[in-house]
Structure formats: structure tokens, C-alpha cells
Design a binder for these strands. Structure first.
Lengths: 185, 185
DNA sequence: GTCTGCATGTAAACAGTTACATGATTGA
DNA sequence: TCAATCATGTAACTGTTTACATGCAGAC
């Protein structure tokens, strides 16, 4: 999966591993996290498979940057993957749900404290998403859409943000009602 | 993580690997999937670490079953894990979001078709959750709660189901509004 | 002088998936 | 006879995480 995310971003703009890590952390990273170690090893593999080419660029400073560019083969591979539709739902892995599921043996105040901490974290996450949405709105106002293809990409990316917002709101509502019910006990 | 799920279920009731697979598929499997291969290897590891004991039981039939029981060490390990609260949100991995994110290069009808398929799958999933919730309601009516500890466990498990329902409703709403907006284009 | 950011990687360990493998019973 | 269910496992592979490793520049 990370393979396709990297191809997608490199196609949009030739990038270094470091840049890919940054861009991931502020966009797809919210629903597909990756450590820099995995990014660099995946990039090496993409290069070996001929899906990207890389070349080292020494700037006027001491730093060595390795810029990755997508090859036509890489573009084909990404398009092929996109055109092969998902036939199942993806498998959710939610640590908190597992913990709550087996929390019958725990003391209620401890569970409550954990839920409140999660509430705080999800509230922060919601704020981040809303900030990102505001930035997008500003960008759309100052740069009126010109290229239709790029516009469609932005439309999808905005839709993803809306998912994030809806998800966090749902999560907060669920935590709130669970906390309220626990307080009654 | 699977380690703790298995310990949790074995504590509730000594079970075989096969039974654990069944029970997982119809409860925690919705938010923490595992293949039988992983279940069996994890059980062997739990045994080696002294967290469970197993003994082979030959029934009146040809079948060989290996029943797993939790040890006091295993109980301690699970309690310790539960009492160490989660300090971050868990990392979401949603294949569909990645695909939509990079769908600017795809033809709109193809994206729409994929979204409609996902809509169907999530609708089915919601139905499954609602059926499970109905079963729970029935069970609560016919078996009035007697043991408070067990009752608390059921309360948490019902809360998890409510999460599942809220999640699928949110997902369906998001898919619907995305499909509607795509149709306008 | 120590911490943060830039920038790159490798190695080892752990988790998860797919495929292989066996063998009896029951129902269509 | 063919497929499904019960019941167990191993092997190989892929993906993910944690830890190790380096080194300069600029701020405090």
C-alpha cells in the first residue's frame, strides 16, 4: 500500500524521501502512517523494480538529497492498481475498542480516565482536520481553479478531509455517551 | 495485541484455537481481524511463555482438540496491560481513503462504481451489527443480569457494538454525499 | 554545549498474510 | 462424488515497528 502512496506523491511532484515523509505526515499519514525507515526501504525497492528513478543532488550546502521521479512503468503500475477496485472493506484495527471490550475486569474510574484522555486526543485531531479544511478553503479562494484534472484531485482530497472530520465527530460522540453512562453507575 | 485478545477470551472460558477463531470472527474480529494461522502460532507462544496451559482432549470422535486455559501469570499479564492506559490514538489504515485520495487521475464513473460497491458492503456490515444488537437485547430480556462483573463486561461489549453502528452510519453518509457530489459533475 | 531540524540510511524484531498440508464426517 | 465443516498446524513471505547510526547548521 505504501508503495502506491509514494508513487502517487512522486507523480504529483518529484520528491526526496524526507519530503515524502513530511507530506505524508500532513495528509495521508492520518489514515496510513509510515515511519521514515519504511519509506526509505520502499523507495529503494521501487527503484530496483524500475518504478522510479533517483538521482543525488548536492545543493550549495553540505546536504545530500536523493530526488525520486516516477517512470512510465511506475505510472502504469499506479493506474493499474487504481483501476482494480476494492472488493472488500478494509480491516479496522482499533486498540481502544479491544481494551474497552475486555474492560469488565477493570475498575470503572480507570476506564473513565482512559476514555477522557482519548477524548482529548480525538478533540485535538478534529481541530487539526478543521484547520486543514480552513487552509484549503483559503487556497481555493485565492487560486481560482484553472486546471480541471488538478481540481478533481483537490475535490477528492477535500472529501478525505470531510471523512476525517465526520470520523472524529462520531468518535467524540461515542466517547461522550460512554463516559456519561459510566458516570451513572 | 492478538495476544491480549486471546488471553481475554481464554480467561472468560477455556477454549480451543478453533473456538477462538469462531468467537473472534463474530465479535472482536470486526475491529481486530486474525487468520487461524496467526491464532495457532500465538497460542504456542503464549504456552511457551507460561501465560496459558494446554491439554489435548480426545472426544468420543476422531478429532483432536487442544484446550487452552489461562494461568495466574497470564491473568496478571492481561491485567497489567489493561491498567496501562493508551496514550495515543490508534493508527487508522483505510485502503479506500488512499484510493480516493489519488483518484484524480481516474475516470469519474469508475470511482463512482467503486464507491457504490463499498456502499453495499458497508450497508451489509451495518445490518450485521444491528442483528447482533437485537440478539443482545433478546439475551438481556430472557436472562436478567445476576452477576454484576459479567454485567459490566456485557455493557462494554454493547458499547463496542454501538461504535460499530455509529461508524458504519457515518461511513454510509460520507459515501452517499460523495456519490451525490460526483453525480453533479 | 546541547537541542532541534535537515537528511539519509541499515538491522533486527515482530506482526500479519498467503499458501501448503492433513484427515475424518456430513449432507447435497 | 463433491463440497463444506471440524480441527490442527507449518513455511515462506511481506509489511511494520523499534532501535541503531551518522553528521552538519543554527539557535539558545
Amino acid at each position: 500500500m505504501l508503495k502506491y502512496i509514494l508513487l502517487g506523491f512522486i507523480w504529483q511532484k518529484p520528491s526526496t524521501g524526507y519530503e515524502l515523509k513530511q507530506v505524508l505526515d500532513n495528509s495521508t499519514g492520518y489514515f496510513w502512517h509510515a515511519y521514515h525507515s519504511q519509506i526509505y526501504t520502499t523507495l529503494r525497492k521501487l527503484e530496483q523494480d524500475g518504478l522510479i528513478t533517483t538521482h543525488i543532488k548536492n545543493g550549495n550546502d553540505h546536504l545530500t538529497r536523493r530526488i525520486c521521479r516516477i517512470t512510465p512503468t511506475g505510472q502504469d503500475e499506479l493506474l493499474e492498481w487504481l483501476n482494480d477496485p476494492l472488493m472488500e472493506t478494509s480491516k479496522m484495527k482499533e486498540d481502544l475498542l479491544v481494551r474497552v471490550f475486555f474492560s469488565g475486569v477493570r475498575s470503572t474510574p480507570e476506564v473513565e480516565a482512559e476514555l477522557r484522555l482519548q477524548r482529548k486526543l480525538h478533540e485535538q485531531r478534529l481541530e487539526e482536520y478543521l484547520d486543514l479544511a480552513d487552509q484549503d478553503d483559503d487556497a481555493l479562494c485565492s487560486n481560482p481553479p484553472e486546471v480541471p484534472a488538478a481540481e478533481l484531485g483537490e475535490f477528492y482530497q477535500a472529501a478525505i478531509l470531510q471523512f476525517g472530520v465526520a470520523y472524529e465527530k462520531m468518535y467524540l460522540n461515542w466517547l461522550d455517551s460512554l463516559i456519561t453512562e459510566l458516570e451513572k453507575v
